[in-house]
């Protein structure tokens, strides 16, 4: 090896190892997306148009997107906050050592415990017959009388937090570990109070990671379908559910609009993943 010239068939052979990957990805990831992208520009009578994207502002679509954004923002912020607090508590808050491994293992489980079983678990907890609902009744409070419903913005957000918080924990923990003890001591040595250390050093250093992960959480909830479907039977107003309804029965009465809705979703996801990886890169440079 290392010779200046390589025989040509050898160079082709180089590609052989990665060829299956590219073919497979094209067939099952890129192809399906591209066809949606193409169709989203197709007019009902044929020809290319931007009309479908213009119609994204129709009430049905806006409501669905709006609910998705609301739930995603809420669960990203709340999940990010509680996830960060939990990660902080088990890494530097002085809890006994085993709590950390319990928390990471459980977070691995809970972040993957989405979909039907999660929906079922919450129905048994906060549904009309749920255990917690029943407990509240014992204290004289009828949750569903007060306007709460598991099949609402608030309910769905509560359910989503079950996989949002653990994801935050898993991504932020390494960043917290990256905070060097020397930084804290250097700050203290220079006269900073613990509060000043957090304000000027620790939080700014963690900020890209925290923000990035929250954006990741946003995307994570924005694209979630199974849990919402299992909980509401697919009839709730939500971006992913709207696409599902469109697949089963063209509820938008316009196939082209359906494709545009799907592509809009992909773009929002792509944007959030992009921002996440940019912020993560900065964070790694600092915490490396």
């Amino acid at each position: 090896m290392g010779g200046a010239q390589r025989p040509p068939q050898r160079r082709l052979g180089q590609w052989f190892g990665v060829l299956p990957f590219f073919v497979f990805s094209s067939l099952f990831l890129i192809g399906p997306t591209l066809i949606l992208a193409y169709r989203s520009f197709e007019a009902p009578q044929g020809g290319l148009t931007l009309d479908n994207y213009r119609q994204l502002t129709s009430e049905l679509v806006l409501n669905a997107y709006g609910m998705s954004v609301r739930i995603s923002l809420t669960t990203a912020l709340v999940g990010g906050l509680f996830g960060f607090l939990l990660a902080w508590a088990v890494s530097m808050g002085g809890l006994p050592r085993p709590f950390r491994s319990i928390t990471t293992t459980f977070s691995g489980v809970a972040s993957n415990f989405a979909g039907v079983p999660l929906a079922a678990a919450f129905i048994f907890t906060l549904g009309r017959i749920g255990l917690v609902t029943a407990l509240f009744k014992v204290f004289g409070i009828d949750l569903y009388e007060t306007g709460f419903s598991l099949y609402s913005f608030l309910g769905l957000s509560l359910v989503y937090l079950y996989f949002q918080i653990p994801l935050m924990v898993l991504v932020v923990l390494p960043a917290l570990d990256g905070l060097k003890r020397d930084w804290r001591e250097a700050a203290e040595n220079l006269g900073a109070t613990p509060g000043q250390y957090w304000r000027y050093v620790a939080l700014p250093v963690l900020l890209p990671s925290i923000l990035g992960t929250m954006i990741l959480l946003f995307g994570n909830s924005f694209g979630a379908h199974a849990t919402a479907y299992a909980l509401t039977g697919g009839l709730f107003t939500l971006g992913t559910l709207l696409i599902g309804q469109q697949i089963s029965g063209d509820v938008l009465h316009n196939p082209g609009l359906g494709y545009a809705v799907a592509m809009g979703m992909v773009m929002i996801m792509a944007l959030s993943i992009l921002i996440y990886s940019l912020l993560q890169r900065r964070s790694e440079r600092w915490l490396g």
Binding site: V18, S25, I35, L36, A226, I243, G258, V266
Partner: peptide, 24 residues
């Protein structure tokens, strides 16, 4: 390139992916 492609499943929600599969 490979890293980008392996990230696609995060970018394409499952419901969109299956939508595309059915159409394709």
């Amino acid at each position: 390139v490979v890293e980008f492609i392996t990230l696609l499943p995060f970018v394409i929600p499952a419901v969109v992916l299956v939508f595309g599969l059915i159409r394709l």
